[in-house]
Nucleic acid binder design. Structure first.
Lengths: 223, 223
DNA sequence: TACTTCTGACAATGCTTCATGTCAACATGT
DNA sequence: ACATGTTGACATGAAGCATTGTCAGAAGTA
């Protein structure tokens, strides 16, 4: 009985199982992120409940709402992480193949596809469910893919500054090429990786190269 | 009081409001189909309840379950109808432009995009929600897009029988081209049709042409 | 008019989910 | 050993949903 006891005293946070409070919380957060990847990535967003996420994370609802506002917030966090992981990986590989544009593009594509094969769960998260959750998530996805085609655009224009598409809108073409990769990836993943990754990489690269070639031809001999 | 009254007598079906029983049922079915298109196409599959579908159709739950086993069955029917409508329209236009392959492809593409602009609701149904409902619906969508790339393949190979893709898998390329059109369409629709339909059509056609050109080049002068 | 079918409004059931709350058991530092 | 922070199991409540059922009245038939 301490005499100066305040009425709204904060509980003293302390270590537990050898971990500081922040560490424990981060670990719980992490477990939910992995549970989200596991369940959302296999059964989709709408088929998964908070209770199931908790069971997968071996934690209880209380801690779920400690880390995330709701189911959608967890999905958004998982989505964003997957995007950034894949992006970093692809960019790193592209950098490693500087300055050969052909090698850069092919290696980037291969890394993209290999990432999906290593963890097919992220394919569903990145390309399917994100579009059917809420307008906010749809917009987030739109920005990601727009950013991707923007990068693609910048990339090709830096490599081939002389390219001027006659009557073509580079933004639309870039959107198309991104869509091509995504659709190929989806069919590849859902088809059980029937083709070797090199085949997928080469065929997608062929689309890129075809466009560059077309642009060169159109610009070098107009009409 | 008829003396021979059977215990399990079937109710005599009769006309009502000048319509035969079958006509009435068909009309109810139709109203649910339109309600499904309206609500699924704007708010998505998961955000719509049976009650809302009934309100939109101005009918009651009883009649919903008369026509459809559940919400998913209605979605499947709406999806299938939209696929077939768009396909018929595109095929009709393509036929009308025989035998000029360039005109056929461009007109087909334009009809595809124009169909989406006339009724943006079907974009969501055809490309987004169908993938996140159930494995069965996902498979149905897969078959549709596979059929589409199959047609594309057959089309180009019929027009350019000499084309032999060196080291390329025509199936993957076709999948990519279909994905390109779908992604361009999605961004076009969700971006509020910022570009004129001719621009979208021409840029997608450019992708097609680029591939054909690439194949021709690769086959005529190998290496 | 008398009878039957058809229709719409809505109640009822049973289930599931989200989100919060309770509480005893456990772990820790003193 | 004790007081207290921490945890997991479970309870609770409000809400929403799918599906079936009830019933009075409108619309057709004879």
């Amino acid at each position: 009985m301490c005499p100066m006891e305040s009425l709204d005293e904060k509980p003293k946070r302390r270590t537990f199982k050898g971990l500081a409070p922040e560490e424990r919380q981060r670990e719980r957060h992490e477990r939910f992120m992995e549970a989200g990847l596991a369940l959302y990535g296999t059964r989709g967003y709408h088929g998964v409940t908070v209770k199931e996420l908790c069971a997968e994370a071996k934690l209880t609802e209380r801690y779920f709402y400690e880390s995330f506002k709701d189911r959608e917030a967890l999905f958004g966090a998982v989505y964003q992480r997957q995007v950034e992981q894949l992006r970093e990986r692809v960019l790193a590989v592209i950098r490693r193949h500087l300055p050969d544009p052909r090698a850069m593009a092919r290696a980037g594509l291969e890394t993209f596809f290999q990432g999906l094969r290593e963890d097919p769960r992220c394919a569903r998260i990145l390309f399917v469910d994100v579009l059917s959750i809420s307008p906010a998530m749809t917009e987030q996805s739109r920005q990601v893919t727009s950013g991707l085609s923007g990068f693609l655009l910048q990339f090709t224009q830096a490599l081939y500054p002389q390219l001027r598409a006659q009557g073509l809108d580079p933004e639309i073409v870039a959107t198309g090429l991104v869509g091509a990769c995504i659709n190929v990836a989806m069919h590849w993943v859902y088809g059980g990786f029937a083709q070797p990754v090199e085949a997928v990489r080469d065929n997608c690269y062929a689309l890129f190269e075809a466009m560059i070639l077309t642009w060169s031809v159109k610009t070098s001999k107009p009409g």
